[in-house]
Design a protein around this nucleic acid. Sequence first.
DNA 1: ACAACATATGAACAATGATTCATATGTTCA
DNA 2: TGAACATATGAATCATTGTTCATATGTTGT
Lengths: 108, 108
Amino acid sequence: MEGEAGKIDIKDIPMPDEDVMYDLAELYKVFGDSTRIKILYVLFESEMCVQDISNVIGMTQSAVSHQLRVLKNSKLVKYRRDGKTIYYSLADGHVRSIMDQGLEHIEE
Amino acid sequence: MEGEAGKIDIKDIPMPDEDVMYDLAELYKVFGDSTRIKILYVLFESEMCVQDISNVIGMTQSAVSHQLRVLKNSKLVKYRRDGKTIYYSLADGHVRSIMDQGLEHIEE
DNA sequence: ACAACATATGAACAATGATTCATATGTTCA
DNA sequence: TGAACATATGAATCATTGTTCATATGTTGT
């Protein structure tokens, strides 16, 4: 026997589209790296340029730049240019609430 | 020049401990796989045994079992045994709120 | 135009991770 | 105890990914 299987069809269960669940997983992958988490925390304080982010979190300029691109592609951060310098900042409030929810879960 | 670097110290920025940020990333890694996302969505409906989960999301028993272990280790799901069958269910409400936040971000 | 600086990018490498296959563990019932 | 079933697990494989190094792009001031 396989439980209730046979009676159960994916169509009977109200789930988001396959694509949506895939996109959701992709989004969480972005949060699933401690370098990117650190960057996001730094940006909670204020917008900041790449060099400063590198110094604060102790990673190379290149590594930070690569990860900023990932965050940018997921629309979690935005940026503005001021001369040679590019300032990054958080894109919206969801970042904060997602991370707060995660923290709550951890602290149990 | 390196921006404001030199003035900026990680100590001046109120960030969670290194360990906490690492754990947070580990937690989000768990959400960062579409198979696990599907499992969690299925469990939103009701507790369910491994075979049924496999059937509903269309993955092998083994693959589902492996992923359930990951979810179990992160305390996102719990389980109870009833004879041969093991029923899995969501561990707490954070799962739902984390995923809802993610969905909101995607649908923008 | 050139030098100095800030950031981005591409290739390479190492590490991590998801799935599959085979098999082990644990449970029920006859 | 043995057969059938439900789940778990270990090893192997293939794909993904984060970091590094070298270098390219883009900007400013002289």
